[in-house]
Amino acid sequence: MFEATLQKASTLKKVIEAIKDLVTDGNIEVSETGMNLQAMDSSHVSLVSLVLHTDMFEHFRCDRNVTLGINLPNFAKILKCSGNDDSVTLKAQDDGENLAIVFESEGQERVSEFELKLMDIDAESLGIPDQDYNTNVKMSSAEFQRIVRDMTVLGDTCSIGCTKEGVKFSVSGDLGQGNITLRQTNSVDKEEEAVTIEMDEPVELNFALRYLGFFTKASPLCPRVTISMSPDVPIVVAYNVGGEKDTEGAGSLSFYLAPKIDE
């Protein structure tokens, strides 16, 4: 059987909220190392990779690997029933048809029990090459969300270009064009707002803003986001889960998006 308790149900709620509009059904693979989900959107343009290590759980028991086929919008509906400071316990039998979800308030005076029906999902998985990226930009997740939102006003494709000086987001559409440049900041009052760029050579790629917009739904998870790019490969937009700022969290939520290319 599988049984795991997270002290903060809100963390799981934010994770599922962040992916449920991009991916409807997904298999959560549970093993002794933790919980993992890899799923693509219906057009196979983007991919979500969620890793929750056992470290982030208060209690984690997994006797045998289990695949939990989950309808994510329905899971999100149940997670919305948790209180702000509730813990959450997930339980499943080896060949069970349901996932039990139990919320407990801090003082344990309120206990809510739910069951979510599991599904058989025929999910296609892809092997993501373990590669070093040419460019890694770390910035405020709220700032990234704002830029993506602002770019969407003007068009549907955003160019992201990075040099040592800064990272430039550009868009053009029927009503005109725009761009926003963030300079690398050495000293800022608020550490969370710093822009740091590690790069080998300048890179510029084009991406569909619709998908970048989906990814920024993960902003409540972490004040920082890491954007990784290399020429002619999918971009990675990654958030730590259950960690602080730039430090390695006990988990991660990464989004991959295939670039747009000139025809």
Partner: peptide, 14 residues
Amino acid sequence: SMKQTTLASFFKKP
């Protein structure tokens, strides 16, 4: 115009 690529062109099926 720009063409959207898919992930299958970059990531392999295991």
